[in-house]
């Protein structure tokens, strides 16, 4: 199995505060990897290091075969990123957003044209292409944001709470898109506060106080902790947290 993310004792300190404390794990190609933890557990800091946005204090990390210390810029070309908070430019139209991102990721004019048409058709947005993104319903915006984040067929896509605030039906449709991307070999690295979504992941990792406290398939974790759902596993682990979320 091809490994696309590999870390060893990856650590980030801010002064005396150890935000991420020697985390070691691997993620395989095409895997849907759920990255869970309470607010302040260190998820965002870990994700920023893996995206080449924050230099680790110590430890090792390879993302898409690239070392995070030496070539953080190279990493950015090989990954996609989407968060609930920011993904699309609201004052650009649907089509302008697609073209902008495809251009940023270095696609040729011909590819941009092809990709835009394909994407608009797939999402059924034909009648909306010239509308500003701010006028789109949130559910559509999120589906468009995800499609744009993988427009350059990255090896890995990082999704930071991608489904916050949307209705349950749209949330399900969003996960269908995640499954499709994973089948095409794109690795999905996803954080969420909806723990039913943790069940849809191939493996999940739960962080507490900057450390990885559990890493396994959802069914194995439930078996290990002798509980019926991931929420219970999460409660048991998150309650051991000492540093709180301040």
């Amino acid at each position: 199995m091809e490994t696309v993310i590999k870390t060893k004792d990856l650590t980030k300190k801010f002064g005396d505060f150890v935000a991420v404390d020697k985390i070691t794990f691997e993620v395989h190609k095409g895997e849907i990897f759920g990255f869970l933890g309470a607010n302040g557990a260190g998820k965002t800091t870990a994700m920023r290091m893996l995206c080449g946005l924050s230099r680790p204090t110590s430890g090792e990390a390879m993302v898409a075969g690239i070392d995070v210390y030496h070539k953080p810029e190279e990493i950015k070309k090989n990954i996609g990123y989407m968060s609930q908070k920011f993904s699309l430019y609201e004052d650009l139209t649907v089509l302008e957003n697609i073209k902008f991102y495809a251009g940023i990721y270095g696609l040729s004019d011909k590819d941009i044209k092809e990709k835009s048409d394909e994407l608009v058709e797939k999402l059924g947005l034909q009648s909306q292409v010239k509308k500003l993104v701010q006028g789109l319903p949130l559910g559509w915006r999120q589906k468009l944001a995800f499609s744009v984040a993988i427009v350059h067929q990255p090896k890995i896509v990082f999704l930071d709470e991608p489904t916050g605030g949307v209705d349950p039906s749209t949330r399900k449709q969003f996960w269908d898109m995640i499954y499709d991307a994973s089948e095409k070999g794109i690795t999905i690295f996803v954080t969420t506060h909806y723990l039913d979504e943790a069940e849809y992941c191939d493996r999940i990792c739960i962080m507490v106080d900057g450390k990885i406290k559990a890493l396994d398939t959802p069914s194995q974790l439930k078996q290990n902790y002798k509980v019926n759902n991931i929420t219970e596993v999460f409660y048991q682990l998150a309650r051991t947290a000492k540093r709180g979320d301040d």
Binding site: G37, A38, N39, E161, G164, G165, H193, L195, T231, F234, Y235, A238, R239, D245
Partner: peptide, 10 residues
């Protein structure tokens, strides 16, 4: 409770 983890939500 938007954007708040399950433990704090509880």
């Amino acid at each position: 409770t938007t954007g708040v983890d399950v433990v704090s939500r509880k």
